[in-house]
């Protein structure tokens, strides 16, 4: 099979299938959890749950190690925190503001918006790749992470790293013919999409649960989350 065929296959049926698996898988997971049942909180509140929740999301945007009164907690792993932060920033910008990806969004949901200049996206992509490597090294060496990291977590790392590195190589026209690396990029993206409902990358969804729960807990007790 020739690479332009593989490219057509991975941009076409494979991507389509992956999307379907992704959607079905995520709906399944979401529903399974929501239907486990929720108990009403009957306690008398002391503060506003809503405000706590809002505050919690806002606070999520600040990188904690820089807040003076909590810095002490992070003296051991500020780097991880920062690498994680940069990785997510990079992921967001590359996926939401890269010209190529905007075209994907447009083809998927019909809306498009202005891309950021490629050099910025490109820089951030590099930052994302470096962050992922830092996180990998950290995972390989940190005693707690060694304990926590099982096979699925390595898979997580891999399926996130591959789209990044192939995308970067493609944008820079390095080593491979464009259609080859484009195919690899697409195949790795499809892997990612299929894996998400199976692994912990789905945290992007459950984030909103746990973050809201914590915000509400803190809010009702009138503390800053």
């Amino acid at each position: 099979m020739d690479w332009s065929e593989i490219l057509r296959f991975s941009r076409g049926p494979l991507f389509h299938l992956s999307l379907i698996i992704f959607i079905a898988g995520m709906t399944y997971r979401l529903l399974r959890i929501v239907l486990l049942g929720w108990e009403r909180d009957r306690t008398k509140r002391q503060g506003s749950k809503l405000w706590g929740t809002i505050l919690n999301y806002l606070r999520g945007l600040i990188i904690l190690p820089f807040i003076p009164w909590v810095r002490r907690t992070f003296r051991n792993n500020a780097l991880t925190f920062i690498a994680g932060g940069f990785f997510h920033l990079s992921l967001f910008v590359v996926l939401a503001f890269g010209a190529a990806h905007i075209l994907v969004w447009q083809s998927l949901c019909g809306i498009s918006w202005k891309p950021l200049p490629t050099p910025i996206v490109d820089w951030l992509a590099a930052v994302g790749i470096i962050s992922l490597l830092v996180l990998l090294i950290n995972r390989l060496t940190h005693p707690v992470l060694k304990l926590l990291t099982k096979l699925p977590i390595w898979i997580n790392w891999t399926v996130v790293f591959l789209p990044f590195i192939t995308g970067y190589i493609m944008t820079h026209h390095l080593w491979f013919r464009y259609e080859v690396i484009f195919s690899l990029h697409m195949i790795s993206v499809c892997l990612l999409l299929i894996w998400i409902p199976l692994g912990r990358i789905s945290h992007f969804l459950f984030y909103f649960f746990s973050k809201t729960i914590h915000g509400a807990q803190a809010g009702k007790r009138a503390v800053t989350p």
Binding site: F15, H16, L19, A100, L103, Q106, S107
Partner: peptide, 11 residues
């Protein structure tokens, strides 16, 4: 006129 990165099979 569809960008090269767009999905080939529109959902």
């Amino acid at each position: 006129y569809q960008g090269q990165s767009a999905a080939l099979i529109p959902p």
